[in-house]
Amino acid sequence: MRPDLKRPLLVVAIILAAHLALWIPSPGLAAQSLRNWGQGLVDVLVIVPSVLILIGLFDAWVPKEVVARNLGRTSGVRGVLLALLLGTGAAGPIYAAFPIGAALLGKGARPANLVIFLGAWATIKLPMLMMESAFLGIRFALLRLALTLPGIIACGFLMEALLSGHTAELRTSPGD
């Protein structure tokens, strides 16, 4: 795909037009929606460009063989632990993890470890654990963690089994 600004600009134009149309019956809702959109964009734009740069460098410098060895079919328990560690170490919503996951998959990570990475990214974070304890109690936070962690690992291997024979579809290049 050729990089061009036309499609993003078109999307922005459509979104602004939709809000303009919404403004007539409900100006308060349109304003709040626009504010949320702006806040969401700020949240994403402070993280995603750095992530994309790191993915580009990762792609250029890290040999396929290294990823395949550490996260691939034969990586075993160590691969699962590494996937968990990679997922918990980062911040940001789960969609920031999609391009990273696509890059890992392209370099030979096994699907189970990709799913574990995404799950850990979404819901297991140490700073978040503190926040969860503050708002809902430490018993709640630790119990939810203890139940979710094995669930995510089980999901990873279940998905890999269910996806076997469909790996061709998974091997698409990132950002395409």
Partner: peptide
């Protein structure tokens, strides 16, 4: 290139979440 590829979907998704 991957950033520009990501951008339209990101803009739309964030607008949907915001609304």
């Amino acid at each position: 290139r991957s950033g520009l590829g990501l951008l339209p979907g990101l803009l739309a998704v964030l607008a949907g979440v915001g609304l």
